[in-house]
Amino acid sequence: MSTLWRVADVVSSIPETETARTIGLRVNGLNGNLAGQHIDIRLTADDGYTAVRSYSVSRADMEETLEITVDELANGEVSPYLVRELAVGDQLEIRGPVGGWFVWKPTDTNPVQLIAGGSGIVPLMSMIRAHHASENPAQFRLLYSLKSPEAGFYREELQTLGQESRKLTIDYVYTRKAPEGWPNTPQRLTAETLLANILPTDAVPDIFICGQTVFVETVAEWLVQAGYPAASIKTERFGGTGGTR
C-alpha cells in the first residue's frame, strides 16, 4: 500500500529557521504513521519531469495530517522549491510513510536517548511528540547539537516541553555560537561532552542518532567505545545526496 503515490494537500507552511520550513500535508486515508518514519515526495514540472526525495516526518501523531521539516540545501533540486515556493493550498504527491527500523512506538518500554546533529532533530522530534502524547512513562533524553541558537528547530515547543515534562530532559551543545550567558564556549562535540550529557550505560537506553554522516559515524563510534551495546544504537543519516536523508 505504501508504494502508491497519493495526493497531499499543503495545509500549513511555517518557517523554523532562515533556511528551514515545516510543511503540513493532509493525505486522505493516511491512517497515522510511526514516529521516525519518512515519506518520499514527488514533484512534477509542467513538462512532466519529476524528482523524488525522501524527508523525515516531524509530526506523526495526527490521523490525516503529517508534518515534515525541510532544510534548504544550497545546491538542492527539491528542497529550495519546498522551502521557498510551495504554498498552502498547493498539492504534491507523497509515497509512504515508510520505514520500520528507525522508529519509536508508544509500546516500547526502554528509556530513550535521542542524539540530534542540526536538522537531524526532525525524526527525533516526531518521537518526542509521540512520547509526550502517550501515557508511556519511559524516560526520554535529547542531546541537540547545534551551530547556534538560531539554527534550532521547534525552539519554543522544545523549551516548553523541557520545562514542563517530567519524562523529557533536553541538553544542548552549541558548536559555533552559544546563547548569551551560556556556561560553555562553543566547540565541536567531543566524546567527553557527549558522555556527560546522555543517559548512562547502566540505564540501558535505546539510542537514536540522526544527523550528517560524519556526526552520526563519530557519535556512534564514541558510544560503542564507551560501552553502549551496538545493538541498542539506531542511526539515520542526512546529507550528501541532494536529499535530506
Binding site: T44, D46, T50
Partner: peptide, 15 residues
C-alpha cells in the same frame, strides 16, 4: 501524469 508544481523546474537528468 501527477500533480504539476508550476514553479518547479528541477535539473533534468532523467534523460
Amino acid at each position: 501524469m501527477g500533480i504539476i508544481s508550476s514553479g518547479f523546474h528541477g535539473r533534468r537528468q532523467t534523460g
